[in-house]
Design a binder for these strands. Structure first.
Lengths: 144, 144
DNA sequence: ACTCATTGTAATAACATGATTTACAATGAG
DNA sequence: CTCATTGTAAATCATGTTATTACAATGAGT
């Protein structure tokens, strides 16, 4: 059981824009070839990132730009942009109300798990696009 | 995007066993009626919990017992018992090797995300079955 | 030894969700 | 006006989860 492609794809899109803006026109087709995924997915994701105020997309002419400095864009924002705001885990919605465990499980377990989710979001908030870009560059250097 | 039922179901199973062992025979049908789910799911989950050394199940006669003290059973063990040991997120497996971002994204993002996953598991390790049982009992008391 | 409720497990179906693909109107710089 | 591109809808495919049915194996109780 894993989270979907969406957040990693969004990260890769933003990294490509950060790295190639000004060098290449970062169209959905261009980005799609880096991720190796369908351009429609890129356009949808780009739409979510635009709605979240992270990028602006030039309709018609094509290409996307970052709105904020990579040091100001966190993984938390990216995650929130592309994922629903919902619980991390799916707790049974119709447990038996006659069972003392069943009638309290949602509240009790839900409380504990929401704390865990918040910790995860805190961790995400500490990782910036600039960090990732830096790691990409370091990895590139050590590649030769 | 959420994790599946499995871990919450496993938690509820263990809570019911802890609460009702000695009072009722905790058969898969009994447990299924608390969770309001199919008994086969219970039996499969119970099998995973047995394999993880958390419960023992009486084949033939029926019923399950905890092998360990609820204070010694953590959410981490329960999570590991029922979920694959895999990455939290699904990073594109075939990114473009000609793109400097594509050819490093797995390593760079994977590293960051594995740290986050480990933090999540650490959080889980701090929550015991006894904690949850206690919360259930408290919630029950405040219910009247 | 027999009974019978129960477990363990396989197989299948039903369902939900994610990803792919095709298609096309709307956009906007040149 | 043109044309590459975006934004979006719809249909399809793939995959994973949950539900359901079925039945052999188990083992305590009689």
């Amino acid at each position: 059981m894993q989270f979907s492609f969406r957040m990693p794809v969004a990260v890769q899109i933003l990294l490509c824009i950060a790295k190639f803006d000004g060098v290449f026109k970062t169209t959905s087709t261009f980005l799609a070839s880096s991720v190796n995924i369908n351009p429609v997915i890129i356009r949808k994701t780009l739409g979510q990132l635009k709605a979240a105020g992270l990028v602006e997309v030039a309709a018609g002419v094509g290409g996307a730009k970052l709105v904020k400095d990579p040091r100001e864009i966190t993984l938390q924002e990216i995650f929130n942009a592309v994922e629903e705001d919902e619980d991390l885990f799916h707790i049974q919605e119709n447990p038996n109300p006659k069972c003392p465990v069943g009638r309290n499980i949602q509240q009790v377990l839900g409380n504990k798990l929401s704390v865990v989710k918040n910790h995860m979001l805190d961790d995400f908030a500490k990782i910036t696009l600039a960090d990732l870009l830096n790691d990409i560059n370091t990895a590139e250097e050590s590649r030769q």
